[in-house]
């Protein structure tokens, strides 16, 4: 019962905020661009300046209507039931699922297929290994 009340309150908050936003657009059309950027500010999607945009994004989405991101679309999958820190890095399941995985060419570097292969090649050539570690995959569009 209490949960239903909370849900209803949240729904009312969404509707009220949405209505307030529409009123703002309707009553002051000349300010529409500025208001639009305030209500739904395009977040900094670049990767610190580049690498730390997440809190800004979340902040932006949460700012106008608290439940908008939940209702409309940040796709957050369920967290794994349990976490096993002993699993290998590659086997860890992400909480935020990529929406697609379009393959792309990973640049013009001639990459070895595996780190052991690169280490073996290094032993032969005397060149150091360059290990590029990343979240995501270099051959995915969204990486």
């Amino acid at each position: 019962m209490a949960r239903r009340v909370v849900k209803n309150i949240a729904l009312l908050a969404i509707l009220a905020a949405s209505a307030a936003g529409m009123q703002a657009f309707a009553s002051e059309p000349t300010d529409a661009p500025a208001l639009r950027s305030k209500v739904f500010k395009i977040p900094d999607m670049s990767k610190s300046r580049i690498e730390l945009p997440v809190k800004g994004l979340i902040g932006d989405l949460r700012m106008p209507v608290a439940s908008d991101s939940r209702a409309k679309g940040i796709e957050i999958s369920k967290a794994p039931a349990s976490r096993n820190s002993a699993r290998s890095l590659d086997s860890q399941k992400p909480a935020l699922k990529p929406a697609s995985s379009q393959k792309v060419e990973p640049g013009k570097v001639r990459w070895h297929k595996a780190i052991q292969t690169a280490m073996d090649a290094s032993a032969q050539s005397g060149k150091p290994v360059l290990l590029f570690q990343m979240m995501g995959r270099l051959d995915d569009r969204f990486c």
């Binding site: 001639r110 990459w111 780190i115 060149k127």
Partner: peptide, 18 residues
């Protein structure tokens, strides 16, 4: 100069706004 290799430490988080 190098023997290059790339590895993924985990999937990258993405957001989709519908």
């Amino acid at each position: 100069k190098f023997e290059p290799v790339w590895v993924s430490v985990r999937d990258v988080p993405t957001v989709t706004i519908d």
